[in-house]
């Protein structure tokens, strides 16, 4: 059963359970993939029925500490192709190095975990600033984002605290997923259950948008113009959903 391609049920918990099983039985996987993976000719696909224990989460925290566990979760949310194998090797080495695991940057699984989780954290931070809401006629605030990593659930808590007295929706266009907030809690739902196509902008919206664009144009100092510096901090991939960049696209 060595060198198989192991499939997990798309959730973090299910992945942890699978890795735990593999480690316990000393199985070295060739690949670990979620259910949407389409195997190639040479893959020896293995579906295991593993009893999912919720306890696994605490077990991992006990093993490598909560800080490293959080990094693990960020890697899980990333768009990295071999993220599952990286996590497998991280936990494999975690058995030896325990809560000191992240100090071992000479191990590739550690340096990759740190690199990828930093990338996810970085993207979350960028989106806290770059999300642009527009007000719809029913006063709901609506924003679209297109993050590389699956960060919607990391962005939502920030806006729950910040815009607690507004109804708002953030749509991940890439994954067709929505985060909805009803002034109490936020929910993550699939986009198929929801359509906004017929909803118009509020009558105030246009005026506010024009004010913002005017402010943006005014605040730049001509004598200091620095295209490269702006691009470093605000790469073009964000521009599509940023109102003030509309005219420069």
């Amino acid at each position: 059963m060595n060198n198989g391609c192991f499939i997990y049920e798309d959730t973090f918990l299910s992945l942890l359970n699978l890795i735990h099983y593999l480690l316990k039985n000393a199985i070295k996987p060739d690949k670990i993939k979620n259910t949407s993976y389409s195997p190639n000719l040479f893959d020896e696909v293995v579906h295991l029925t593993i009893l999912e224990e919720k306890e696994i989460f605490n077990k991992v925290i006990q093993l490598i500490g909560s800080y490293a566990t959080r990094a693990l979760y960020y890697v899980f949310l990333s768009n990295e192709e071999n993220k599952e194998l990286i996590l497998y090797y991280l936990l494999l080495n975690g058995q030896k190095y325990k809560d000191k695991i992240l100090f071992h940057r000479h191990l590739r699984c550690v340096s990759e975990t740190i690199r990828i989780s930093n990338y996810v954290i970085h993207e979350v931070h960028k989106y806290k600033g770059f999300v642009r809401f527009q007000e719809l006629e029913n006063h709901i605030l609506y924003a679209e984002v297109e993050p590389v990593n699956d960060v919607l659930e990391l962005i939502a808590p920030h806006f729950k605290k910040r815009l607690k007295n507004d109804y708002w929706i953030i749509k991940d266009v890439r994954r067709n997923r929505l985060s909805l907030y009803d002034k109490k809690n936020y929910y993550l739902v699939s986009g198929h259950e929801f359509s906004l196509e017929t909803t118009l902008k509020s009558h105030e919206e246009q005026k506010v948008e024009e004010l913002w664009k005017a402010f943006y144009k005014t605040i730049g100092i001509q004598e200091r113009k620095n295209e490269r510096c702006r691009m470093n901090f605000m790469p073009k991939k964000y521009w599509k959903y940023m109102l003030e960049m509309e005219d420069e696209l």
Binding site: K128, G129, K164, Q222, R224, C229, R230, F233, M242
Partner: peptide, 22 residues
């Protein structure tokens, strides 16, 4: 009420001179 502060600070845009707009 509306709003809170983020201890890290957040940049919301960058102007044509590359300076942060917060």
């Amino acid at each position: 009420g509306i709003g809170n502060v983020a201890v890290s600070g957040i940049c919301h845009s960058f102007s044509s001179d590359g300076r942060c707009i917060s």
